[in-house]
């Protein structure tokens, strides 16, 4: 069992938890993820390692409530325990030798981007961070990003915080103003990553996208997480989750991510009803 040491609500749909998982904490690196199950009959869901503390033996996760399992998880409190917690899975971000990078995060993807930004910063790289959210209410980790970036740009769809517009607008502006990046790293909704990659392709800037397809085992056993990269099938859980963004077939990934939409909606509604019933 894996105890929840800390729980913090970051915004109405995004929650941070620090979990006691010493075996995972020993090895965790930015870019890697874990797979958890809340309880005995639970689904296996992957979440990125947002932070880790090797001495304390803890892993921080930041998740957005989007469906049944994240809803259930969000009802867990400090002191409760998760049934399963396996990791660290996937390959770590390759930060070596990069002097200047732009990290582009969107929505809850910013939680995934944070440890990457931090690691680049700690290595002395110049990091320009662009984070985008729908509105002011949803902004997370603003201070943390500021602290670890040489330049931080906050974008919102409606302009309620930072600059109004898309992350791609901000990135384009930086590039056009003459900033030269060794690499752009993008993490967020598939559609956002697709447009970031389209943009950087025009400027021929190497771009890494962190993919989040549907997963089960996370060990390369089911092939459910497969995507096409450079015309070849790759398993995101073991070959990724980060890939060369200019080679990813985003349209296929977007289609595949919708496989269980109707089922998910149904289960989520049931779970919500269950919690409502408990409240009454």
């Amino acid at each position: 069992m894996y105890k929840i040491i800390k729980k913090k609500v970051l915004n109405p749909t995004v929650t941070l938890m620090e979990i006691d998982a010493p075996m995972v904490a020993r090895k965790a690196e930015p870019g890697q993820f874990i797979i958890l199950r809340t309880d005995e009959n639970g689904e296996r869901i992957p979440l990125t390692i947002a932070d880790y503390n090797r001495e304390k033996g803890t892993i921080t996760i930041i998740f957005q409530v989007v469906g049944a399992t994240t809803e259930i998880l969000n009802h867990f409190e400090e002191g409760d325990s998760l049934h399963d917690f396996a990791g660290p899975l996937g390959r770590a971000t390759n930060t070596e030798g990069k002097k200047k990078v732009a990290v582009v995060g969107g929505g809850v993807g910013c939680a995934i981007a944070y440890p990457v930004v931090k690691k680049f910063h700690e290595q002395g790289a110049e990091v320009h961070t662009i984070i985008g959210f729908r509105n002011n209410e949803l902004v997370i980790l603003e201070d943390e990003f500021k602290e670890n970036s040489s330049k931080m740009i906050l974008m919102t769809d409606d302009g309620s915080s930072g600059t109004k517009g898309l992350v791609t607008d901000a990135l384009k502006k930086l590039i056009e103003s003459g900033e030269e990046y060794d690499e752009v790293i993008t993490i967020g909704p598939l559609i956002m990553m697709k447009y970031v990659c389209q943009l950087t392709r025009n400027y021929d800037i190497k771009t890494i996208a962190s993919m989040n397809p549907i997963m089960i085992d996370g060990t390369g056993m089911c092939g459910g997480c497969r995507l096409t990269v450079g015309g070849k099938t790759q398993f995101a859980c073991v070959d990724g989750p980060e890939f060369d963004g200019h080679k990813i077939d985003f349209d296929e990934a977007i289609a595949r991510s919708a496989t269980y939409k109707p089922f998910e909606r149904m289960i989520h509604d049931d779970i919500c009803k269950l919690y409502e019933a408990e409240v009454i």
Binding site: M221, C222, G224, R256, T259
Partner: peptide, 13 residues
């Protein structure tokens, strides 16, 4: 890689 194509491992798991 179309939706609805499984490996047997995924389907059975």
């Amino acid at each position: 890689n179309l939706k609805g194509v499984y490996s047997a491992n995924e389907f059975l798991t």
